[in-house]
């Protein structure tokens, strides 16, 4: 079915791109927090952990609509703006996760790099290698969060067929229309994907290694 395929493509695009960009940004922020011991920065992100996604959606809407500051970019109601929104949404989550995951070993690795005269880039590569698992896990957590997100996607995306309609926004639409069957189909697919992501996360995380 053409429709389901389009929804799948849009959803996957949004999930993967926003999680990837957020991973890179979050890693840098986490690195900064640990390296320069910026506790207040960590608290800053921690306080935004539970920010409702619709609030971010609202803010983005105000900024990117035609009469808004960045209105000239014409990004509203495109998949790009959803990606921007979701990326911003999951950064606090990822930062929290990464910092907590790597803080125990961060300073040791840093010292090894210092003692052996590694430069900033070498340190970065070393850490990415060492913390590969934690970074990957946080990637999947980001994916999971974006996957079910609805409010932001609706507000800034407009649920446009073929363009900004994701699994979750489709379910809203089908339910509103009264097409409960279609809604359930989309729901099952969404559930299947979230299950796959959950499994990826689980198999990758430390806990699995104990079995």
């Amino acid at each position: 079915m053409r429709e389901i395929f389009n929804i799948f493509i849009v959803s996957m695009k949004v999930i993967f791109i926003s999680s990837s960009i957020s991973l890179i940004i979050s890693f840098f922020i986490s690195f900064l927090i640990l390296d320069k011991k910026l506790k207040f920065l960590f608290l800053f992100f921690q306080s935004f952990l539970f920010i409702p996604s619709v609030l971010i959606g609202l803010l983005i809407y105000i900024i990117f609509k035609r009469s808004g500051i960045l209105g000239f970019l014409n990004l509203l109601y495109t998949s790009k703006i959803i990606i921007i929104g979701e990326t911003i949404l999951i950064i606090p989550l990822m930062v929290l996760f990464i910092v907590n995951g790597i803080k125990d070993r961060f300073y040791e690795i840093k010292e090894i790099n210092e003692v052996f005269c590694g430069n900033f880039l070498k340190n970065l590569l070393l850490m990415i290698k060492e913390f590969r698992n934690e970074l990957l896990s946080s990637f999947f957590i980001g994916c999971g969060r974006v996957m079910g997100e609805t409010g932001l996607a609706m507000i800034v995306g407009g649920n446009i067929k073929g363009e900004t309609r994701t699994f979750s926004t489709s379910i809203v639409l089908y339910t509103m229309r009264g097409e409960i069957e279609k809604s359930i189909h989309a729901g099952i697919l969404l559930f299947a994907f979230s299950l796959i992501f959950n499994l990826f996360y689980f198999f990758n995380s430390k806990k699995w290694k104990y079995f």
């Binding site: 509203l76 109601y77 649920n159 446009i160 639409l173 509103m176």
Partner: peptide, 18 residues
């Protein structure tokens, strides 16, 4: 032909944007 899946006012806003 843009098919939004949203209510009247949201669709009007999309028309405004586009």
């Amino acid at each position: 032909y843009i098919q939004t899946g949203t209510g009247m006012i949201e669709s009007l806003r999309i028309a405004e944007e586009k």
